[in-house]
Design a protein around this nucleic acid. Structure first.
Lengths: 229, 229
DNA sequence: TGATTGTTGATTGTCAACAATATGCAATAA
DNA sequence: TTATTGCATATTGTTGACAATCAACAATCA
């Protein structure tokens, strides 16, 4: 019995199911842009492409539908869900509230390992900013926030937060490369982390919520500029 | 073409699917206590009982699993999820945060119809309290909070809130009939609504969050008294 | 007697087939 | 020419069958 690896092939086989794997694969395709909002998912083609029968695929559809990433129309098929400006605004508001809770809780506990990790991410954010590497900055930005929320130690909170982050990905894609976005955002991360380290729960919550709502305003302004209607 | 009723039989048939109906039925069974935390769901028996084949039932399982109400063990079956005190505490914290956001937004908008509805519910709560009718009080309590959150007008917020309310139902059942619980809770509802009507967003948010966290403390204290573990 | 092996039956996981529905295109009528 | 009807095809919804896995029990061994 091989127990030297993190997870043995046997244990992995006992844990993984086709619906689970298909769910993960579809989610990946949605998040990385292979599947776009509004795209229709053809069961037969997709089942053939993934090398499974339609049953597990349909199970995966139901999971992703409940996760808010797909929508089903009976007898007409399943589509990647589209999110408009109004719903995006709702998501941002809720997300800001969840982040504020996380910052408040994190400022109260301040686990050294998490703080160190966040500080490292801040450094990497500064690097990406110095190199005007928008893609890298964006990815690190997400990582910073996710790490912060996870470090609060409330798994229900983390799960909901991630759920919303995935959903907001369905909002029309925006250009992360605009240099004007980068500077403001970097300063804010530093300030939020400093407040957390200082143990100022209330100020940290306010700062991160303000930061999130600023992001919302910027994103919605951009979306409005691209499509005035 | 019959369009006089809210939804014609044809439209209903076009909308409703077996997986959707089964999902709703299982959820009802979980929420009304027909299915208890830890119960194992036997596919064959349940499919026969509901008069469907196992395919739609499995689809329903995936949806409810994603909703946090069921958990699957591959090759061993599906179980109603159990929630312990730690997770319950997490859920309460997040719920309180969401309710605070709702109260803040509601105090800013104060839609007359929603306010009237909440005031009516408050009256009904007082009736139930006067009659020491714990079950009715509990149901109205849930209704009051749900109405308040929904009235904030953020559908993402409402959906997440409802998701958490359903999940908290998996926590061990407690006696709602204890008279000591009733008085405090009624006063708080009145105070929260008054602050909302007064348009004091910040105070309303603080009051409702305090209320929610008080509920958390009471529920956890009771759970601890029942099972010191 | 306790541990191990073998067998059986129940259940879960997946697939393929059939029924039902929607869509698109061609033929027909006005 | 436009609108309507009919037909064929593709796709979705559901079912039943088969394979794989697990748990329980009986038989055997040390």
């Amino acid at each position: 019995m091989d127990t030297t690896s993190p997870e043995s092939p046997i244990a992995m086989l006992q844990r993984l199911s086709l619906p689970g794997l298909v769910t993960a694969e579809l989610e990946r395709m949605i998040l990385d842009g292979s599947l776009l909002p509004g795209d229709k998912l053809n069961e037969m083609a997709l089942a053939e492409r993934l090398g499974v029968s339609r049953g597990p695929l349909r199970e995966a559809f139901r999971a992703l539908e409940e996760a808010g990433l797909l929508r089903q129309e009976k007898n007409r098929g399943v589509f990647v869900r589209e999110i408009g400006a109004e719903e995006a605004a709702e998501i941002f508001d809720v997300r800001a509230s969840l982040e504020a809770l996380a910052a408040r809780q994190l400022a109260a506990t301040r686990p050294p390992a998490a703080i160190a990790h966040l500080q490292q991410l801040l450094g990497e954010l500064a690097d990406a900013h110095a190199q005007a590497d928008g893609d890298r900055y964006h990815a690190l930005n997400l990582k910073f926030h996710d790490t912060l929320v996870a470090a609060a130690g409330n798994r229900t909170l983390s799960a909901l937060y991630r759920r919303l982050v995935k959903q907001i990905g369905l909002f029309r894609r925006l250009n992360h490369r605009d240099p004007a976005v980068l500077g403001t955002s970097l300063d804010e991360h530093g300030r939020i982390l400093a407040l957390i380290i200082a143990g100022d729960s209330a100020a940290a919550a306010v700062a991160i919520e303000r930061h999130a709502l600023d992001s919302k305003a910027r994103m919605l302004a951009r979306a409005h500029a691209s499509h005035p209607a």
